[in-house]
């Protein structure tokens, strides 16, 4: 079947199999930041934005994305580097395999929540599993990033 989607601001029209999941489609389009960590919709590694909302690209059929706009980390390089620097300064990326999905969700959170509390941050990000860090360095990075953004604004 034929679908037309916008990936990172660029329009693509492709013939796809009806059971292709968005994750595999995006990797076929060269978006290698999108990773798969499980088959049960549990890990959050495949997080991308669909019309600005964070979704699991492993569970979302490419067919359903027809007509929609998708953003991956490849399309948010500047923001990824900006937040990523805070993560890197904590050593919080570690193996890095969960970083793209995690960062996509952090960036979604920043757009959706205003001045989130620590509890709100943890809850928003709870669908992103990480086996290396124990999450503490990620939280420090998020807090430092939010403080930095607030400083820049004021």
């Amino acid at each position: 079947m034929l679908i037309t989607v916008t990936i990172n601001g660029k329009k693509y029209t492709d013939e796809i199999s009806p059971d292709l999941v968005l994750l595999d489609y995006l990797r076929q389009k060269g978006c290698y930041s999108v990773k798969r960590g499980c088959e049960t919709s549990n890990c959050g590694l495949c997080t991308v934005h669909l019309d600005g909302k964070p979704i699991l690209s492993c569970s979302y059929l490419a067919a359903r994305a027809d007509g929609h706009s998708i953003t991956t980390l490849e399309g948010l390089q500047e923001e990824a580097a900006e937040f990523g620097a805070f993560l890197a300064d904590q050593g919080g990326e570690q193996c890095g395999f969960c970083s793209p999905g995690f960062i996509m969700n952090v960036l979604a959170m920043v757009r959706e929540l205003k001045d989130p509390t620590e509890e709100e941050i943890q809850e928003y990000l709870s669908g992103n599993l990480c086996r290396c860090t124990g999450y503490q360095s990620q939280l420090r990075a998020v807090k430092n990033y939010l403080a930095h953004k607030q400083e820049v604004q004021s």
Binding site: A85, D89, I103
Partner: peptide
């Protein structure tokens, strides 16, 4: 010292640096 990892920025910007990406 708290040195940033040399590969950190390629990891946090999602570069294709893992086995499955190659």
């Amino acid at each position: 010292a708290p040195i940033r990892k040399k590969d950190a920025m390629s990891l946090v910007t999602g570069k294709p640096v893992y086995t499955g990406d190659m």
